[in-house]
Simulated assay, not measured.
Amino acid sequence: MIKATQLETKDVVNLSDGAKLGPIKDLHIDMETGKVIALVLQAPSKYFGLMRSGKDMVIPWELVSKFGLDAILVDLQPMDRRYYQD
């Protein structure tokens, strides 16, 4: 079992290209069932970490492959923009 507070300390890594996608910022949870629907990753920072450079990334729960000690593995197509929040 893993606690929600432990998620922000883990790296999120894409299996298809090995890219580090960023830290987990939030979770989307279905209020009726209590199940996690998606992980929300924080937009990357720019300007020496002072400002965010874009939109947060939302990864559907079905694409989360594995939780490890140091990382969470997800299976996304590289540079697929549909995962970015509007």
Results as ranks from 00 to 15, higher is better:
36 V>N: 12
42 Q>V: 03
40 V>Q: 14
57 M>R: 08
72 I>S: 14
47 Y>F: 11
39 L>S: 02
64 V>Q: 05
72 I>H: 11
62 E>N: 04
60 P>I: 09
39 L>F: 08
9 T>S: 13
40 V>F: 05
37 I>Y: 01
25 K>Y: 10
79 M>N: 12
2 I>G: 10
23 P>R: 15
46 K>L: 03
39 L>N: 05
73 L>N: 02
47 Y>M: 14
73 L>Y: 07
78 P>K: 02
68 G>L: 00
6 Q>F: 06
51 M>H: 14
26 D>C: 02
2 I>H: 13
34 G>I: 02
73 L>S: 02
40 V>N: 10
17 D>V: 08
40 V>E: 14
61 W>N: 10
28 H>N: 06
80 D>W: 11
65 S>T: 15
73 L>E: 10
44 P>S: 12
16 S>N: 13
8 E>M: 05
80 D>R: 07
62 E>K: 11
80 D>F: 08
48 F>H: 00
77 Q>L: 07
4 A>P: 12
57 M>T: 01
15 L>K: 07
1 M>A: 15
53 S>K: 04
14 N>T: 08
60 P>R: 04
45 S>M: 01
67 F>R: 01
73 L>D: 03
78 P>F: 06
55 K>Q: 15
11 D>G: 07
30 D>Q: 03
65 S>G: 10
31 M>N: 04
72 I>T: 12
66 K>F: 02
69 L>M: 13
43 A>N: 06
4 A>T: 14
32 E>Q: 05
60 P>W: 04
72 I>Q: 14
11 D>K: 15
61 W>H: 12
38 A>T: 03
7 L>N: 11
81 R>P: 10
29 I>Y: 08
62 E>F: 09
21 L>K: 05
10 K>G: 02
83 Y>N: 07
39 L>I: 04
19 A>R: 05
74 V>N: 14
33 T>H: 04
8 E>P: 00
39 L>C: 07
12 V>N: 06
57 M>P: 06
38 A>I: 04
23 P>W: 07
74 V>Y: 09
2 I>S: 13
48 F>A: 03
76 L>V: 09
39 L>T: 01
53 S>C: 07
15 L>S: 06
8 E>W: 00
42 Q>I: 03
58 V>L: 10
49 G>P: 14
72 I>E: 13
16 S>L: 15
55 K>P: 13
71 A>P: 02
58 V>R: 12
5 T>R: 12
62 E>S: 06
39 L>Q: 03
56 D>K: 05
60 P>D: 13
80 D>N: 15
4 A>Y: 06
30 D>M: 00
43 A>F: 00
71 A>C: 04
